[in-house]
Design a protein around this nucleic acid. Sequence first.
DNA 1: GAAATAGTGTCTCTTAGACACTATCCT
DNA 2: AGGATAGTGTCTAAGAGACACTATTTC
Lengths: 299, 299
Amino acid sequence: MNDTPIKNKAGLTEEQFLQSYDASRYERPSVTVDMLIFTVADEQEQNYRKLSPKSLQLLLVKRGDHPFMGQWALPGGFVSPDESLEEAALRELQTETNIDDIYLEQLYTWGEVDRDPRTRVISTSYMALVDSEKLEVKAGDDADDAKWFRIEDRWLRESKTATATGTVTEKWVELRLWNEAEELSATLKITRTVNGRTVREDREIVESRQIAFDHARIIQYALERLRGKIEYTDIAFALMPELFTLSELQQVYEVILGKELLAAAFRRKVADKVIETNQYRKHAGHRPSKYYRFNPEWT
Amino acid sequence: MNDTPIKNKAGLTEEQFLQSYDASRYERPSVTVDMLIFTVADEQEQNYRKLSPKSLQLLLVKRGDHPFMGQWALPGGFVSPDESLEEAALRELQTETNIDDIYLEQLYTWGEVDRDPRTRVISTSYMALVDSEKLEVKAGDDADDAKWFRIEDRWLRESKTATATGTVTEKWVELRLWNEAEELSATLKITRTVNGRTVREDREIVESRQIAFDHARIIQYALERLRGKIEYTDIAFALMPELFTLSELQQVYEVILGKELLAAAFRRKVADKVIETNQYRKHAGHRPSKYYRFNPEWT
DNA sequence: GAAATAGTGTCTCTTAGACACTATCCT
DNA sequence: AGGATAGTGTCTAAGAGACACTATTTC
């Protein structure tokens, strides 16, 4: 485009500049990705004619070394120089599960100075949603156990204080993760500060029981994001098998939102996101239900 | 909590482990923050009785060195070892503007391998919204010019293709940034891929005219986020002065959404986000309008 | 008086919630 | 037959869009 190369104040062309550039001038942090791998799985069915209840689950790995040895952490790892952040996330996903075609979304980047006692670590978290039927978790590759945990959070209390220029609202939340063998939990304080015309939200770990690093905070943030997005996007379908009934889909919404929905309104709401098939789910001790599939034309 | 310290497989306690940890084992990327500083400013008023039109503006700096010397880039810089990501963002904000109490939100972290020709750079972008009345841009501290640009994007065309397992939708968008002296632009292709039950979105720069690095992509992403969030949050007020009329507030919504709104519906929608005052804006060649302020109680 | 904006009243259409009601299968 | 889920019809209340109408100022 330019015949005479532009020179900078040191008299270098761009080519010369790049050759002389010393990348090690600045001290650099480590960068990792943390994976929030969610699925919705069936619980044991108690009664041949009842629907089996579903639960939201998250994959965690047990730490086999310091720091936080023996505690549970999000799967993840360092980003290598020749891969993008998203490639690192996909790689981590494949070391933990057998799934390659998956919903993956970047959530947030955590950059506090003291997040990791080893060294300065900046960590980008990704949320992955997987269909529990296609899924099998690989046996601990890196000598760490990977296990699914049921997950729930619960409001404890809320307080609101007026200040000179706005309000401060503090909410306490309890996060619980458990399976047959273990129970982990954490208490978090979410502070919403309205100062003048600007609002800021801050998430602080009050207590973390058997959850490594600041991962309790990341997990609770992801839960809120998942709840928020299920209302106005189609991410719920990433958690479904190819064919599903509307009752099953409703169960997935209910377990994520943590509340019951009315069937009539729910069906109207998802009507244009799904396509009816001719197949039925039978032998269930009650009226058979039609199978549906995701409508890829939906916007 | 524990009297006998846990030892790992190498026989080290946590304390010993941390002392022997070699942080330089892995090659590390550089980490930067990029700032998207938006404001809404008055244009010249043409007629004593007409409202002065408003425009959405973004702050850019001219690059004084290679690479992309002479082109325009987002303000930003390296994250230093002793500050968090958010602290780095606030520091950058203060080197560019005089404002300290500001709306700041993390947007996205960009991690492609070849984003920067100098070295591997991972960059977290933050969006800041400032009130143009309180604002003054500092004279180029780091020898770079900082200038406001009016900003708009525009759909060029859209195509949708069916695939075996879903659909691929491609949208072309033109991004324009201009002021009295300069005009920058870029063409982007946004690809939405529906594959099975999962949806992915990809943003690619087709052509970038005088916009450095991959910043055209970051800017267009921020614009979409700003448009999305103004509908269901209160971020618009971060762009307003302490006192404002509802017509001014409506103008801000209109310039961000890029479309006209009906006054009656708009007033109903913002009614509980604002508090009426007794003051009026007068001497305007038409009926005076009441001043309002933000209602910090709004949730 | 005219131009321009400020502000209100009301009709319509759409959507979410509530809930009653019908349909169908399996043991 | 009875238990359980599947699926529909309809009333109501709330909200968004449309638009006509009134109000008030300054030059």
